[in-house]
């Protein structure tokens, strides 16, 4: 369960506080997916980062699996993020020095986990890259890199998957494939999936869709 209530986010600036989110609330149950759309600079990524505990809200609360992550201290919050949240970024952020398998295993290094390698291999197989286990990111295409990023996001079996423009850098066909993969896995694992995107085609595949305008989240009715 992910629940964000009355989230407000302001950034101090020389010209006074700059308000990005004014009052945003969202509640998603396990197995639910949501797409958040909106123009550039409207605060989509900021909201996603707050859900992912990467940024703290100026006001409001976030609960993930009945836990208020912002009440945790830094090490506990890091551990919580490691176990409960999986991130997928637009530019995938793979470590260039590591192979595909190693990149997927990076989140598991935080705590000893004997099953992690098997899980990672299974996930890589699931995303269709079992033949590229030892390849480095530089040897992969954009779509393949994003698949590795999806596998990495899932390796610790998080309850929440957060994706920021996961197909933004990809061509339409690859983007479609990646979106399908992401949703398939989401359904298999009954995670909460939140995706930030500009793409209405991608958004249409999600259970719930929201538009972020003037700092507020507004549901988009199905056409």
């Amino acid at each position: 369960m992910v629940e964000a209530r009355n989230i407000r986010k302001e950034y101090p600036s020389a010209a006074g506080d700059l308000s990005v989110l004014t009052d945003v609330s969202l509640a998603l149950r396990p197995g639910e997916s949501a797409a958040i759309m909106g123009p550039s600079g409207c605060g989509k990524s900021t909201f996603l980062n707050i859900l992912g505990t990467l940024e703290t809200p100026t006001w409001g609360s976030v609960r993930i699996d009945d836990c208020d992550p912002f009440s945790l201290n830094e090490p506990a919050l890091a551990k919580f993020r490691n176990k409960s949240i999986g991130f997928i970024f637009q530019d995938h952020h793979l470590l260039p020095q590591c192979s595909v398998l190693e990149n997927v295993l990076v989140p598991t290094l935080v705590q000893a986990d004997a099953d992690a390698p098997a899980r990672a291999r299974a996930l890589i197989d699931r995303v269709g890259l079992s033949a590229r286990l030892d390849h480095r990111p530089a040897e992969l295409s954009g779509g393949e890199r994003q698949r590795v990023a999806i596998a990495r996001a899932l390796v610790n079996q998080p309850a929440v998957l957060l994706a920021d423009e996961p197909t933004g850098d990809l061509d339409a066909q690859t983007a479609d494939t990646i979106a399908a993969l992401l949703l398939e896995i989401h359904r298999e694992r009954k995670t909460v999936l939140v995706v930030v995107t500009h793409s209405s085609d991608l958004a249409r595949r999600f259970d719930r869709r929201f538009q972020l305008r003037e700092g507020r989240l507004q549901p988009v009715q199905p056409a």
């Binding site: 990467l54 993020r81 990076v106 935080v110 610790n156």
Partner: peptide, 13 residues
Amino acid sequence: AEVGLLRALGYSL
């Protein structure tokens, strides 16, 4: 970016 990624993946400071 590597540092940011690791932090996002749950590595404590």
